[in-house]
């Protein structure tokens, strides 16, 4: 495993820690899109189907379990926890996320590395992850006061994607058989979705003003 991949995984983990900190400690999910969190839970459930069948490394297994457990517990908190769920900004989180699922599934049936159940589910999870941030970005645009933890959460998620691209470039030159163009194309699309957010995030940080996305 190269440094970019490890750094990518760590920023991904950090984003989850930041979000859990907000939800678990501050008991608030203000500014967080439940739709995006539901999509992530579905992404991990579809992608990690091989968890108990195909062993890669202890690191891999532990990280998969962490992402599965954290994504489902975040959804549980936002839906069921009696204090947290009251802070959920339901009125602004209106993205029709169900309409993302079927096209991703159709695309996975058409474009996959192998036409098997697990490979189709893997491709589906890759496509769905690429667009899962959309409801969150829409909600951020509609949020007047984006708090620091929410901004940091999205920033770390985006950083994870950038680092994964660097990881693929590195692997491409160091591992002759490493060609996963499905994840590359989807990953680049996913990273581009953050471009706008990154611009405003860095500007707000540079000018030391509160983060706000133009509508």
């Amino acid at each position: 495993m190269n440094a970019f991949r490890l750094a990518g995984d760590m920023t991904h983990l950090l984003s989850v820690v930041v979000l859990l900190l907000k939800i678990h400690t501050i008991k608030s999910c203000a500014g967080i899109s439940l739709k995006t969190q539901e999509l992530y839970a579905l992404v991990f459930a579809a992608r990690y189907l091989d968890l108990f069948i195909h062993f890669i490394s202890l690191y891999n297994t532990v990280m998969k379990l962490v992402f599965l457990a954290s994504s489902f517990s975040i959804v549980w908190y936002m839906r069921r926890h009696k204090i947290v769920r009251r802070t959920y900004d339901k009125d602004h989180d209106t993205f029709r996320h169900h309409f993302l699922v079927l096209p991703c599934l159709a695309l996975a049936l058409l474009i996959n590395e192998r036409f098997t159940f697990r490979e189709v589910m893997w491709a589906f999870s890759i496509y769905l992850e690429a667009v899962a941030i959309l409801p969150q970005l829409v909600l951020l645009q509609r949020t007047r006061n984006i708090d620091n933890l929410t901004g940091q959460y999205v920033f770390f998620l985006g950083a994870y994607r950038v680092l994964y691209i660097l990881n693929w470039i590195y692997r491409y030159f160091t591992e002759p058989h490493f060609v996963h163009w499905i994840s590359w194309v989807a990953g680049i699309v996913q990273t581009l979705l953050y471009a706008d957010f990154f611009y405003y995030y860095i500007m707000s940080w540079k000018n030391n003003v509160k983060l706000e996305l133009p509508a």
């Binding site: 991949r5 995984d9 992608r47 992402f67 590395e113 192998r114 893997w122 990881n167 996963h180």
Partner: peptide, 10 residues
């Protein structure tokens, strides 16, 4: 194994 695709990333 030629029948499985290796996905070693998360």
């Amino acid at each position: 194994n030629a029948d499985t695709v290796e996905h070693d990333e998360l």
